[in-house]
């Protein structure tokens, strides 16, 4: 049983690796997005912003922004696969129907797809972490855990993104996706501290998933790890577990009729 639960999702990951062998440029190009943001906003705008204070220590604006960008790129990497590509396989090419008449079951297919999205998000995060290291934006040994945190952010958004996608009726519905991911990217304390918000708005921001990813990354990059970091991990794990169960049920309703 354990073997199948790993071996079958692994074969779904392999399928994605094979299909992306010719599309490596698509994979690599998305790597540069957070780098552009880092230089445009972190370094450029940082000149105007000046230093910030983080747990009583002065830090540069670039130091502040970079971990947030890393969390966002983990989100974006996962979201892309689990929305557009997922919809295509679900409704257009009906790749999942073909998979489900093999020994694979829905949870194998979903776990494989989520693992792949997580790996993709993780890949962007690791390359960006390299950029951060090169520019001295990492100041703590806690940062070795950042790739793991990126995988957690990736799988949480993979689970939520695929669940949302099962409700899409057509390609136009994906406009709604940007209405969700853009504010998340811009408002989840990626570019400014939570304290900037009026006190009534802070709990709302703290409810959103990317906030937890961003704050966790910042704690790891800057070495400000305390109980709240564990809270972020717990939140992201809970979101993943719940969304995974929900998407598996939805998929069974859609495909096993």
């Amino acid at each position: 049983m354990m073997l199948a639960a790993v071996a079958y999702p692994y074969r779904v990951v392999e399928r994605n690796v094979v299909s992306y062998r010719r599309l490596w440029l698509v994979l690599v190009s998305a790597m540069f997005e957070p780098v552009f943001f880092l230089f445009g906003l972190g370094v450029g705008l940082g000149q105007l912003v000046g230093d910030l204070e983080w747990y009583g220590e002065p830090i540069s604006y670039a130091q502040f922004v970079a971990p947030g960008l890393l969390a966002s790129s983990a989100m974006n990497g996962a979201i892309f696969d689990m929305t557009f590509n997922f919809y295509y396989k679900l409704k257009e090419s009906r790749t999942f129907d073909a998979m489900l008449v093999t020994p694979l079951s829905i949870s194998h297919v979903m776990d494989g797809e989520m693992a792949w999205a997580m790996i993709r998000g993780g890949f962007y995060s690791v390359t960006f972490l390299g950029v951060m290291l090169a520019f001295g934006l990492v100041t703590s040994w806690w940062a070795v855990l950042m790739p793991l945190a990126a995988l957690l952010v990736g799988i949480a958004f993979a689970a939520m993104g695929s669940y949302g996608t099962t409700f899409a009726r057509n390609w136009q519905d994906f406009d709604i996706l940007f209405l969700i991911t853009q504010p998340l990217f811009l408002l989840s304390t990626t570019f400014f501290q939570l304290e900037v918000y009026p006190s009534w708005a802070r709990p709302i921001v703290q409810l959103t998933p990317l906030y937890h990813g961003v704050d966790l990354m910042r704690d790891l990059a800057l070495g400000s790890v305390d109980g709240s970091a564990l809270g972020h991990v717990a939140y992201l794990v809970a979101v993943t577990v719940i969304a995974r169960a929900m998407v598996n049920r939805r998929m069974a309703r859609l495909l096993l009729t």
């Binding site: 071996a7 074969r11 392999e14 399928r15 094979v18 998979m99 093999t102 020994p103 694979l104």
Partner: peptide
């Protein structure tokens, strides 16, 4: 090949 992999 990918399909054959699904069958182990």
């Amino acid at each position: 090949m990918v399909y054959a992999r699904y069958f182990g």
